[in-house]
Simulated scan of single mutants.
Amino acid sequence: MALADLFKKKSSGNVAKDRLKFVLVSDRANCSPDTMKLLRDDIIKVISKYMEIDPEGLDIQITETESENRNGRVPALYANIPIRDMRHSSR
């Protein structure tokens, strides 16, 4: 995340859109919007250790999918994470 990104002002429409997304996703996941925000922040923190990402473009969704053993549907977390660049470690 670039320093300039921290100070970039979002339009009220974009802020409202992000809030609505969090409400819809948290409703599907049966967890609070605060929990979804913490999940999103943790994902950004971990992924950012290994690559430079666009946190504004991050899209997290919880849907349902068929379980592997075919005994019903289970929640599934899908994350679309725009990658700007890979971080090169000295390992």
Rank of each mutant, 00 (worst) to 15 (best):
M1Q: 11
A2P: 14
D5V: 04
D5T: 06
F7N: 07
F7W: 13
K8A: 14
K9H: 00
S11V: 12
G13S: 10
V15C: 02
V15I: 14
V15Y: 03
A16Q: 05
A16I: 01
D18S: 02
D18K: 02
D18Y: 00
D18Q: 03
L20A: 14
K21M: 06
F22T: 11
F22R: 12
F22D: 06
V23K: 09
V25L: 08
V25P: 08
S26Y: 08
S26V: 00
D27Q: 10
D27S: 08
R28M: 01
R28D: 08
R28E: 08
A29C: 05
N30M: 08
C31Q: 08
D34G: 14
T35C: 06
M36G: 00
K37W: 05
K37S: 01
L38M: 05
R40V: 08
R40M: 09
R40W: 05
D42G: 05
D42N: 14
I44E: 12
I44R: 13
K45L: 04
I47H: 03
S48M: 01
S48G: 01
S48I: 04
Y50S: 12
M51R: 12
M51A: 14
D54Q: 02
D54K: 04
D54W: 07
P55I: 11
E56I: 03
G57S: 12
G57C: 11
L58H: 12
D59P: 06
T63R: 10
E66T: 13
E68H: 15
E68Y: 15
E68F: 13
E68T: 14
N71W: 02
G72W: 06
R73L: 09
R73G: 00
V74H: 05
V74R: 06
V74Q: 06
V74P: 03
P75E: 11
P75V: 05
L77I: 14
L77E: 07
I83W: 09
I83G: 09
R84Y: 01
R84T: 11
D85E: 15
D85R: 15
M86R: 11
R87Q: 14
H88S: 03
S89Y: 12
R91V: 06
